[in-house]
Amino acid sequence: MTAHFSAENRARAEALVALYPQSRSALVPLCHLAQAQDGWLCAEAMEEIAELCGTTPAEVYGTATFYDMLHTERVGRHVIAICTNIACLLAGAYELVEHAERRLGVRCGQTTEDGEFTLEEAECLAGCDAAPCVQVNHRFVAAGDAASFDALVDELAKGRRRQEVPRHGVLCRIERTVGLPGSEASPRRQARS
């Protein structure tokens, strides 16, 4: 099998596996890592994740497809999720979805031809006091009405929000650096007993 993760990400992957008493537990974090590298979860990544987790690529695929955030098909650089659940519904979320579909020229679940935007109808994102709630790549953004939605799309297309909204797949930009298993500060030897 050829390596799919870069050398740097392979080291990150092995560190993730070491965090858990059983390597299979790292499956979802490793899928996030693959998405951070590639923007989506490709077959080659799933093969390497299976090897790291001591399971089969089919198990990785079967698990990954259970979860909304894991994309086994290509998505855009910006995945825009509009919540339409109860609090957002009451704040006009479907009207916003209709506007977003017109603005981007795609329906929910589709990606623009240039690969910049994927539009999704999301379930409750736990931001109901600012309904309707919109996330781009799982970052909360203020885009609850047509005008601010358009302004957001323009800014994203021009690459002006990269600091705040990294490209799709990059989830947690902060890494655990202290007390890792094997390090001096780790209490793990006792935990594994």
């Binding site: 979802v28 974090p29 996030h32 909304d68 955030m69 655990r176 202290v178 007390g179 209490p187």
Partner: peptide, 24 residues
């Protein structure tokens, strides 16, 4: 406050922050 012998006690604890992936 985390790790081996917390605050000089005999108690040790490791915490792992685990990300979900979207499933109510």
């Amino acid at each position: 406050a985390l790790g081996g012998r917390i605050f000089g006690s005999t108690f040790s604890l490791d915490i792992v922050v685990h990300p979900g992936a979207g499933a109510y």
